[in-house]
Design a protein around this nucleic acid. Structure first.
Length: 398
DNA sequence: AGGTTAAGCGCG
DNA sequence: AAAGCGCGCTTAACCT
């Protein structure tokens, strides 16, 4: 039995998963894995278990003499993705290891496991949502974790395509647009950021225009990408060093971007300083709705511990407030479901997204009500925009 | 045989 | 010296 009570095992609803489709994908992934193993065997001149760190170290570093770019905390040569990415520029084997890793991850974690998690009585997968695990107030999901179903790669998205609705129903996915940055605008009361959201701008593009000093309609793609990295970095309390690595630029340039950002959005700068200060004084920070996160290390002598606590102090109000808001939205939606009993099931929560199974003839009305209830879950000084997608499966609904 | 840890990676 | 927040799952490697 788990020590933390399972407050929300999805026994009543659950989500439909097409086991045959996953089985088919499993077979295809298995073929790719053995192809890669055979190729690696050739190149290495010996059998090569691509998932064994020991063998990777032996073959890549000892036998082939590839440069050791980074070490693990225990002093072993690192085989982390970022390292292998760099090595892949000059050598073929690292690419194969990376491909093998992503394929085997998809197979072992998803296509092989999910079919076994289907409840024979309901024909659905019923995750457990935990309310008292994540320090920021987010839910977590386990057995199986449905909050990390692949989406970023085409291969991975095929797994999402196996998440379907029963005949006569449609998958409806509703997600908050940029909720953490909107919360940052609200908390910091930065005039520029507030205005950008009130004007309904593409916020990364708007940031790029400000930081790089170009008109909105002349922002280039690489500028938007940099601005996006800056925006995310800010939410996480990232340093110039981290931004430099992320954007593959030198540290001075990264610091320049950050300085420019804070010049253009002085309210954000002030908010960040204030938040650190408040955390130091009271030993905790609060979300918009008063959820506390205690930071015992905020005044630690150990710089590493202290800086970690400072980054948490910056991030937790935004991540935590977003968690508060979607929980309120879930309650609001549930009240509607209980009162009206529409043919609608709330089947998943993925941090800033709610997934529903909606009877086809009710799609229009359900979309409107869900969108409105999520948008109205909190009153901020910027609008809370909710994007809704529908489809035969979860992938299509995005 | 079974448990634990480190590394790695899937997601927001 | 570290350097970006929050999770859960799988594997290899190591341990009892």
């Amino acid at each position: 039995m788990p020590l933390v009570p399972v407050l929300a095992r999805m026994e009543q609803t659950g989500v439909l998963v097409d086991a045959d489709m996953l089985q088919q994908q499993s077979n295809e992934l298995a073929v790719k894995m053995s192809d890669l193993e055979a190729q690696a065997h050739q190149l290495a001149g010996q059998p090569f278990n691509l998932s064994s760190p020991k063998q990777i170290q032996e073959i890549l570093y000892t036998k082939l003499g590839l440069p050791v770019l980074k070490k693990t905390p225990k002093g072993q040569p690192s085989t982390a993705e970022s390292v292998l990415q760099e090595l892949a520029v000059d050598f073929p084997l690292p690419r194969m290891i990376l491909d093998h890793r992503s394929v085997s991850k998809l197979r072992s974690t998803y296509t092989e496991k999910l079919p076994k998690q289907i409840n024979p009585v309901t024909g659905r997968v019923h995750t457990s949502y935990h309310q008292a695990v994540a320090a920021t107030g987010r839910l977590s999901s386990s057995d199986p974790n449905l909050q990390n179903i692949p989406v970023r790669s085409a291969e991975g998205r095929r797994i999402r395509q196996a998440f379907i609705a029963e005949p006569g129903y449609t998958v409806l996915a509703a997600d908050y647009s940029q909720i953490e940055l909107r919360i940052m605008a609200h908390l910091s009361q930065d005039a520029g950021l507030l205005q950008a959201f009130k004007d309904g701008l593409d916020v990364h593009k708007a940031t790029a225009a400000e930081v790089f000093g170009v008109p909105l309609d002349q922002v280039e793609e690489h500028q938007r990408r940099s601005a996006k990295a800056i925006n995310f970095g800010l939410i996480y309390g990232m340093s110039a060093f981290g931004l430099a690595k992320q954007l593959d630029i030198d540290r001075g340039a990264a610091q320049g971007y950050i300085n420019l950002y804070f010049e253009r959005y002085p309210g954000v700068k002030q908010y960040m300083d204030q938040t650190r200060e408040l955390a130091r004084e009271q030993g905790y920070i609060e979300t918009l709705f008063g959820r506390r996160l205690y930071l015992p290390d905020i005044n630690a002598k150990n710089g590493q511990l202290r800086q970690y606590a400072e980054r948490t102090a910056i991030n937790a109000p935004m991540q935590g407030s977003a968690a508060d808001i979607i929980k309120l939205a879930m309650l609001s939606v549930d009240h509607w479901l209980q009162a009206e009993r529409p043919p609608v099931r709330m089947v998943m929560q993925v941090h800033d997204e709610l997934v529903f199974e909606v009877e086809n003839s009710n799609l229009k009305q359900a979309t409107k009500i869900i969108q409105q209830k999520m948008s109205d879950a909190a009153q901020l000084d910027v609008p809370l925009i909710v994007d809704v997608g529908i489809g035969k499966n979860w992938d299509e609904a995005h």
